[in-house]
Design a protein around this nucleic acid. Structure first.
Lengths: 202, 202
DNA sequence: GACAGTTCAGTGATAAAGTCACACTGTCCT
DNA sequence: AGGACAGTGTGACTTTATCACTGAACTGTC
């Protein structure tokens, strides 16, 4: 337990406090970790599983901003913790996940006393910023058919997903996904079924 | 000099080191602070002026990600400093600016010894993430005519900007901006001239 | 002031993507 | 078997992006 790389090299005293105050929580698929507007209780360190972070615009459309997996840190929560503002996005568990919840007090002490912890936090922030910058570029300038194909190629074949969910992944409309997929099927690149996409060849 | 809120409440020793090792630099409009791929020498703390941070996609199109003004921190540089990766975006000075360059060593010591400094850094990161998340939503879902009008309304009347620059602000093509502006002119909401937009009424 | 070179703006044609409306089709439940 | 419903397909239309080109406005030089 508490197997997270950011907690590896802590001074003895903090190690002890960590073991005492960090609660490990387990979340089933579908569980909503937090929603827009909510406030943050502590910093979640992902131990296992997969969580997607998405936001919903004023228009009602949603887009997946990034994913968290084992050994990730919920960067959004840090800002939430430090500034006291609510979350702007929501996090949904995709695969059964475990997370270690670091309470505010311990977080402050870790930041104060462990250079390794600070480095981990900063790196995490840096990666998130990079992810989001890339996403902005993708959404603003890249063609949807390219992005869709890329998304499909990045997983293995029987992909279980609805067109609506795929639309949220890419930040577009369901109809656009349906049409592009149909086009790919006509070209013989995929086979479609309800809730399932099979990649052909490649 | 060194008038930046994040340096306000430092312990005496650090205050001294700060005065000794921080160089204040002055940049004229148009000066490129950093470019994609470059590496980072230190953390710039903005003392005055305005700098825009933009990125250029593989397609060659650019989009403004955010701006920095007085008392801001160049958040991108932190990630760059900590991870050693190059910048992914570029920063261009818009108005004559002054920045205090905090070298790596001092940055580490400040993070180590000043809770106020850490808080400032974290807040800055949080704000940047928020900015980018909002931008993703804008670019993905909002209509260009609305975004353009909003952009125009946010400044005062004789706006000196070319259609190309405005396109980069909004992350779209120059032609789109030209057409939307022409439409606004037909509706009597703006008056157009080369490199200038005048808002009518409102 | 005339000219050339350059930047900026306007616009038609066409393609890609988003929106709205509605029909159709698997799946599940009783 | 027969709904109920989530998921998918598609036509019609609007908005945005892209390409190609024209012309207008500014700059500097002679």
């Amino acid at each position: 337990m508490l197997d997270h790389s950011i907690l590896e090299t802590l001074p003895e005293e903090l190690q002890k406090e960590a073991l005492e105050t960090i609660r490990v929580m387990r979340f089933p698929p579908g569980r909503v970790l937090f929603q827009a507007g909510e406030h943050c209780q502590g910093l979640p360190l992902m131990l296992s599983g997969a969580v997607k972070v998405q936001m919903t615009g004023v228009s009602g459309n949603s887009i997946v901003l990034y994913r968290m997996g084992a050994d990730d840190i919920c960067t959004l929560s840090i800002g939430c913790l430090m500034t006291g503002y609510g979350y702007r996005a929501e996090a949904v568990v995709e695969e059964e996940s475990e997370a270690a919840m670091v309470p505010r007090g311990l977080f402050d002490r870790l930041m104060d006393q462990s250079a390794a912890f600070r480095l981990g936090i900063m790196e995490s922030y840096g990666r998130r910023l990079d992810d989001l910058m890339l996403l902005v570029e993708e959404v603003a300038f890249r063609r949807m058919d390219e992005r869709l194909e890329e998304w499909l190629q990045a997983r293995r074949s029987p992909i279980r997903i609805t067109h609506q969910e795929l639309a949220v992944e890419l930040g577009t409309a369901r109809e656009v996904v349906s049409r592009l997929l149909k086009e790919l099927e006509r070209k013989g690149r995929v086979r479609l079924a309800r809730g399932k996409i099979e990649l052909v060849g490649s």
